[in-house]
Each structure stands twice: as C-alpha cells, then as structure tokens.
Design a protein around this nucleic acid. Structure first.
Length: 388
DNA sequence: AACACGTGGGA
DNA sequence: TTCCCAAGTGT
C-alpha cells in the first residue's frame, strides 16, 4: 500500500460548538481490511490457551468477562474455575444466597461485580427463562453489563457483530488509527467505538474482538510494545510516525485519600465478633472486624469509644494489637486493631446489618476483603484467642 | 461528568 | 519501595 493510500480519512471537520476536539476518524475500507485479516490470522496462531476459550457456555463466558473487568488474566483463572464449580449455571447462581456468592468472590476485589452478577442471574431466570439473552442490546439491560461486557458476551458467546472497547482495544486502536485525546475524553471514546464497530463486521466477530484484546495484552502493550512482532505494523499510523510511545497518553491518577478504620477485636470463648458492612460503598456487603472510621491519629481510648457507639454497647479497651496498611487504587487504608471486651456481648446494632461471633474456621468462609483478612490474620497472630 | 470501587504483579 | 496498572460499571 502506498502512502498516498494512507488508510485513514479525516471526516469533514466537525463544527464543534465549544472546544476543538480531535477530529472523528473514518477508517477507509482498505485500512479496515489491512487490520482485520492479519489480526485474526495472528490470533489463530498465537492465542493463549485460556480456560474460558474452551467453553461455549454463555454463562461461563459471561462470568469470565465480569471477573476480567479491571483484573488480570492470571488472577482470574483460579477464581473462574472455583466459582464455576460452586455455581455451575445461572440458575444455580440465582438460587444461591448473596453471602455465598460474595464468599466465592472473596479476594477478587470490586465486590459490586459479584452483587450485580447475582442480581443479573436472578433477572436472567425471571425475565429470560434462565437463558442469557443473545444480543448486546438486551444484555445491556442487566445489572453489571456495561457497553464493554454486553459487546463481549454478545460477540464471543453468540456471534453477534457487536463491538467492544476495553483498555487494550483503546490502546491498540489509538495507535493503529492515531486517535488523539486523553482516556475519558468524550470525542476520543466516540471515535474508538466507531472504529471498533466498523472493524468487527465480518467473519467470527467474537474471535476478532478477542484478537484485538489479545494483541493489546501481549504485543501492543502499554510499555515496550513488541512492534517487531506486530502483525499489523504496516497499517499502524503510530508506528509509521514514530508515535507509538506517546499514544495513548497516560491517564492522570488522583492521589489516594487516607482512610483510617478502628477495628474491634473482641474475643469470646474461642470466637471473635464480626459485622457485615453496608451494601453500598467500600467492601459493600462484606464481613469485617467491626469497624469505625476515625481520624488518623485519634488516641486509642477515643477510637474505642467510637467502636462502642457503632456497636451500641459498652466497650472496654484492653490494648492495641497493631496496624495494617493497604494501598487501594483510590484509598490509603490504615486498619487499627483494638482489643476490646465488654459486660454485654452485642448481637445486633443499628450501625451494622448483622453481627456474628465466629471461630477462625467459620470466619474463613465469610465474604471478606483481603484487607480485612490481613487484619484478621494479624489479630489471630497476636494470640487473642489463646488468652495471649 | 467526575468519582468510587480492590487486588496482586511487574518494573 | 513505590508506582502503575488490567478484559469497566454504577452513580
């Protein structure tokens, strides 16, 4: 292909009312063909052998897509297999208690995914007779299905020519078609979806979408992309212009906010007190050592008073058991372990959905965040249950 | 339309 | 150690 046939034509300049955003890009058919075929062929030869690529079960594929949201493949694999054994069908998932579902999700993060998955399974049963609908449009009406997941399930499980754009695809298309703009930019998103829509039309849409993502994950990587191995290098505008390293621009990240929680470590007869968090927000619906948000350097006695208020009962501070720190994407989390006791053991309070006294064994079966798991491990290591 | 929402791995 | 992320969705 000659340079004169440069495979992108800028659309007629859009009359932007305010800003002057990046022009919308209309891919020429020749450019589409120069990407589509080679990428699909490359995928056939180089795709990784991932467990969800061995099934045609829409439910299993759906599950993989939800677990893969913002989560790396290697992390997901064991979760996917375990979860599928425990909840083999949408019907089984819909019938399971949410607590069990959250326990199956324990440690995976972004727990609202599990909650939405569970709700969606129930809707699949009530609205669609237990079978996942086959179009992106219908899938989009279910909880936890955004534009990406709807396109992924529709194309991979049902063969619909439905586009998808995830982080990988955004990066690949930004480079191939020299799409400008920062992540999150409206115009940029529209252009990427426009390109993805044009590209996916044709044979094997599900495989093509996966090829796009696989290529982004393994070759067209964020750092040090392997352009020498790239099957679509000749069609890549960023490569031609030496702009691979500057596309797409890195996203700006907000500095994490500090969050300090005082945790009640309340031993009694071989058990500790646990509480279930509110459904919304951080670690929603998960179990924890009863927690109260406190100022960073609130003295322990006052922190214990906060816990007493949250538990709705008198509490005696027996000592501090140390601190656990966790870095979340948007939170700088500090967990302060306070050993407490009290004249009456609470069983229900307004601050928590539910309270429960559990042995370490029973606690291990609860849906709990990794952060809280670390705090619990620290508490147990201190010997609270051995009278130490 | 920003912002909230987790985690483990790699540089 | 510290930083950056990786197959997004909901509000």
């Amino acid at each position: 292909m000659e340079d004169s046939a440069l495979p992108v034509a800028a659309a007629p300049a859009r009359r932007a009312k305010r800003a002057a955003p990046a022009p919308t890009v209309t891919p020429a058919p020749a450019h589409l063909a120069a990407v589509r075929g080679p990428l699909l062929g490359w995928y056939d030869r180089n795709k990784r052998d991932l467990p969800w690529r061995r099934t045609k079960d829409p439910y299993a594929i759906w599950l993989s897509e939800v677990m893969l949201q913002q989560t790396q493949v290697s992390t997901v694999i064991p979760y996917w297999e375990r979860f599928l054994t425990r909840f083999p069908t949408a019907l089984a998932l819909a019938a399971a208690p949410l607590d069990d579902v959250l326990a199956g999700w324990k440690g995976l993060g972004y727990y609202s995914r599990a909650r939405n998955l569970h709700r969606a399974a129930q809707e699949v049963v009530s609205r669609f007779g237990g079978r996942l609908p086959a179009t992106a449009e219908e899938l989009l009406t279910l909880p936890g299905f955004g534009r990406y997941t709807a396109g992924a399930v529709a194309s991979i499980a049902f063969g619909e020519e439905a586009p998808l754009v995830d982080g990988n695809v955004a990066r690949v298309l930004s480079r191939l078609f020299e799409v400008e703009g920062l992540p999150g930019d409206r115009e940029r998103e529209a252009t990427l979806w426009h390109l993805a829509t044009a590209l996916v039309k044709g044979e094997r849409p599900g495989d093509f979408n996966q090829a796009l993502m696989e290529h982004g994950a393994t070759v067209c990587r964020p750092e040090s992309p392997l352009c020498l191995l790239c099957p679509v290098r000749d069609a890549c505008l960023a490569f031609r212009k030496g702009r691979v390293d500057e596309l797409p621009p890195a996203k700006v990240r907000a500095t994490p906010k500090k969050l300090t929680l005082a945790l009640a470590v309340w031993p009694h007869a071989g058990t500790l007190l646990f509480a279930r968090r509110a459904d919304a927000g951080l670690f929603g619906g998960l179990w924890e050592l009863p927690a109260a948000e406190v100022d960073e350097d609130l003295p322990a006695p006052e922190a214990a008073t906060r816990l007493a208020a949250a538990l709705g009962t008198e509490v005696k501070l027996e000592g501090a058991l140390g601190t656990v720190k966790r870095q979340l994407t948007h939170r700088d989390l500090t967990l302060r372990l306070l050993r407490v006791s009290g004249p009456q053991r609470p069983t229900r309070t307004p601050a928590f959905q539910e309270l429960r006294w559990c042995t370490p064994d029973e606690a291990s079966a609860l849906g709990m965040s990794t952060a809280m798991q670390r705090a619990l491990d620290t508490a147990l290591a201190s010997g609270v249950l051995r009278g130490g």
